[in-house]
Design a binder for these strands. Structure first.
Lengths: 229, 229
DNA sequence: AACAACTGCGAACGACGTTTGCAGTTTACA
DNA sequence: TGTAAACTGCAAACGTCGTTCGCAGTTGTT
């Protein structure tokens, strides 16, 4: 009856507040962090689908079942991977040039993070435990937004929406949405065909991310700053 | 050698341009559409994870393998489900009150669609074949944006970004992101704690979606309409 | 009549996440 | 110091998944 891996019981505690190991027994051959590092390396190289318990365990030279001495589920592993990746957003910048510039800078950092770890796009939208690094990032955003006079709820909204919009841009860069129109009867979509036929015009402005984020943040945080069309 | 289900070969043709059945053989017991309808019903009721080939087949009173007479893969099924759901956006509105109002209206329709079929949020971000209904929706957006004088690429960007932002709002309504902070050392996040302690202020404005979409579309489509903070 | 193209279906394959049982190791406490 | 509890690694197994395969039966063409 003394035999219970880390997943004992109905998983009442989140992974963050569960001790990595007890006081007795042999020193473990691996560690939570080593597992997470191996999993991130796998995800970076071959995508999130390649992060199977067997593959991660194989990278560490052990069997899949052994991982459950350190984690209680694959979801736990994904949570840990996410939080560790978010930690790469450190160090957080000073608030030199006003809160808006600083927030846009943070958005750019997020975009770069998504570029470095594309699997984050497949992971962030899933309901999961918020780890300490994510909390620290949130905390830092709130700090930057301190001079803004608006309800805290609005700030949370704005931060979440910024992250979301950045993820949209990141997905666009990753996917390069090339839909194949082979074998489709194009005559049913006249406006689409006309738009494709039209000269491409000037290249899309490079500061699209910046402009979008500025507009979004000011629109969400400063009252009465919405312009009509 | 004459035995080959719909998935014969390396799947060179997308599902949209593959005939549902040949000219010989017994009349099929089911149809692509019936399968898709059953799958959507399952997804609406119990989420996308409940849409397994066995479950869909079971709802139709057959076995999992039988579905491969009509589809070549589960991804095909997801594509068909998506396109059918997008078809519910019809009929498309007239352009009565200007392109901006009409586009915002389309955004609201999308939001309602995400509410009716939450599984769409798990499906749209995946690279997939663009079906005829999705193309029709795109075509309609381009039609609405006809009076806007800007490159076609910018219109594509704006439409995609609108869909993305709407999906962010839809996800917020679905998830109701309640992260549990139990067992977390809050003293490490002083600004976060302070923000939580602050009175909640006035309720968040109900027209947040509308304001965000207006700001986004004008910012992306009308040059020089970005304001600074 | 013969053959090819189709149909449904049940069994099987490989991969997945996870559980279990067991043998061995270390610590806590009598 | 001895013993029991807590821990370790590991291989095997379980159930589910998407998908493939083989076979028997049905339909259309020639």
């Amino acid at each position: 009856m003394s035999d219970a891996p880390a997943s004992a019981g109905p998983d009442r505690q989140p992974i963050w507040s569960r001790p990595e190991r007890g006081t007795r027994g042999p020193t473990p051959a691996h560690s939570r962090d080593a597992i997470v590092v191996a999993a991130i390396a796998l995800a970076d190289a071959e995508g999130l689908a390649a992060v199977s318990m067997r593959a991660v365990a194989g990278a560490l030279g052990t069997g899949a079942g052994s991982l459950y001495r350190y984690l209680s589920s694959r979801d736990d592993l994904l949570d840990l991977m996410t939080d560790r990746a978010v930690g790469e957003l450190r160090p957080y910048p000073q608030v030199d040039g006003g809160w808006l510039d600083t927030m846009v800078l943070l958005g750019r950092r997020q975009l770069a993070l998504f570029g470095a770890h594309p699997w984050l796009l497949d992971v962030i939208h899933r309901p999961s435990g918020v780890g300490p690094e994510s909390l620290a990032w949130f905390d830092n955003c709130i700090r930057i937004l301190e001079p803004v006079r608006c309800p805290a709820a609005a700030k949370f909204e704005a931060i979440a929406m910024m992250t979301g919009v950045v993820s949209l841009f990141a997905r666009r860069e990753t996917a390069a949405g090339a839909f194949s129109l082979s074998g489709v009867d194009l005559t049913a979509y006249p406006h689409l065909v006309a738009a494709f036929g039209q000269p491409s015009g000037p290249a899309p402005r490079a500061d699209l991310v910046e402009r979008t984020l500025r507009g979004l943040l000011t629109g969400l945080l400063l009252p009465g700053s919405t312009e009509a069309g």
